[in-house]
Amino acid sequence: MAISFTVNGKDVSVAAEPDTPLLWVLREELALTGTKFGCGIAACGACSVHVDGQLTRSCSVPVSEIAGRAVTTIEGLKAEDGTLHAVQQAWIAAQVPQCGYCQSGQIMAAVALIERTGVPSEAQIDEAMTNICRCGTYPRIRKAILAATGRAARAAAASAQGEA
């Protein structure tokens, strides 16, 4: 039975078993391999995506629950003209990744955090950023989030001034 939903703004229909986790549909049916397999039990966050804007660990959500919903993956973060999301740009500026394997999930978690809180406090960063990084890039992840939100804050201020 086909299951339909949208991924990164495009309609898709997949003929997967209903209990197949969204992760494997993304990776193996839709060739979106930026979303990673890390643990299979929602413990590490490498598979993080957004479903209707909510941060979701895709290894533990059956694709049947995704029917009719909107999924965003790491591949869908950049603008249509190819400009990287402010968080991705901050990740490059802070030279965050080492092996890089967990970073798609880290970035998806950071984007969700910033969308939810605007400018997150240190405590909110601690609480939200539970994804595992074995290379130990945490100090630069923290730095990149702060930098990204600084930029977002300045941009918001500038745009508010422009409207005024």
Binding site: G34, I74, E75, Q88, V96, P97, G100, Q103, I107
Partner: peptide
């Protein structure tokens, strides 16, 4: 190697 590790490519 970093740009390809932040856009999933």
């Amino acid at each position: 190697d970093i740009p390809a590790k932040v856009d999933g490519s």
